[in-house]
């Protein structure tokens, strides 16, 4: 084991130029991956906070009795995607309207009867935020006898849904593509190293080396290349984030909501090492005695 590490380090040093190139290539690849994860993380963050602002208002028919209202409230509370509900009686609605009108409240003066409808405001759970489920709930509500109308942000619902799905699909594709590219870079580097040391490996075999003994230095090498690439990519991602946070943010305050998960920076070297080992394993293939 120690000897394998020594062999790997020696080879890493001996072939430092080709390795530098590999590390930079992997670094760039992982940098892009880092950016994708970074964007994904933030888009997830933003869209997962959107459902809080999304509400469904159920207007009840004018003559609905207290018993029916209470029944409906119980039913809604038990619904798996409902977070909380708020009942607004028609009196409360009028008070609210008055306050929001402020100085213009006099336009309500002439009314001798409250024209407003009682309503129930529904807030949804974040994890239950699924277009089909939400629409299912709304359709069920609309079909009820006591329900006059259901008002909700149809566009918002659709937009959140589309953004989330598109982002997930595209990211998955790009992540897969870049992971494969990184594996390929490690694969070809290790393949070259392997062929350069072919003669040496033949001698190793004749002296009684196991396949593991022959493979290990190459796996360590590939893993180290991936790891170093990951450090580079992680550093790049972090620097870019600091730059955005420091300079760009003063011009575009919107970006202030962005966060950089430190776990991501740490995960890049680990991810790089894993991709490197995968690439090396494929490069070595099946050894024969």
């Amino acid at each position: 084991m120690i000897y394998s590490i020594k062999l790997a380090l020696k080879s890493l040093w001996f072939e430092k130029w080709i390795h530098m190139l590999t590390v930079v290539t992997i670094g760039v690849g992982l940098f892009v991956l880092g950016l994708i994860f970074f964007s994904l993380y933030n888009i997830e963050g933003i869209t997962s906070r959107l459902p809080e602002r999304f509400s469904v208002t159920v207007f009840l028919s004018a003559g609905t009795g207290n018993r029916e209202i209470n029944q409906l409230r119980v039913r809604l509370r038990e619904d798996p995607i409902v977070k909380r509900i708020k009942y607004i009686s028609k009196e409360a609605a009028l008070v609210e309207l008055r306050t929001s009108l402020k100085d213009a409240a006099y336009i309500l003066e002439g009314l001798d009867e409250n024209p407003l409808l009682p309503s129930i405001e529904i807030r949804l759970k974040e994890n239950g935020f699924d277009k089909k489920k939400v629409e299912g709930l709304i359709n069920r509500l609309k079909s009820l006898r006591d329900v006059d109308d259901v008002v909700y942000g149809e566009n918002l619902l659709g937009t959140i849904y589309t953004i989330r799905n598109a982002v997930k699909t595209i990211s998955a594709g790009v992540i897969l593509l870049f992971s494969m590219a990184i594996i390929f870079v490690c694969y070809s580097t290790v393949k070259i190293l392997f062929y350069r040391r072919k003669e040496e490996i033949e001698i190793f075999k004749l002296l009684g080396a196991t396949k593991g003994f022959i493979r290990l230095p190459f796996l360590i090498e590939g893993g180290t290349l991936g790891f170093l690439g990951g450090l580079l990519g992680g550093a790049g991602t972090y620097v870019l984030y600091r730059f955005i946070n420091g300079t760009v943010i003063s011009d575009f305050p919107i970006l202030g909501v962005m966060h950089m998960p430190l776990g991501l920076v740490a995960a890049l070297p680990a991810g790089g090492a894993i991709l490197g080992i995968i690439g090396s394993t494929i490069a070595l293939g099946r050894l024969k005695f």
């Binding site: 001698i203 002296l207 009684g208 003994f213």
Partner: peptide, 22 residues
């Protein structure tokens, strides 16, 4: 078995005609 070959070779020292030194 192929996996036994390395262990068998360790019982055999070989002085190769072409040395095979690194």
């Amino acid at each position: 078995r192929e996996s036994a070959i390395p262990y068998l070779r360790r019982n055999i020292g070989v002085v190769f005609q072409d040395f095979k030194l690194l």
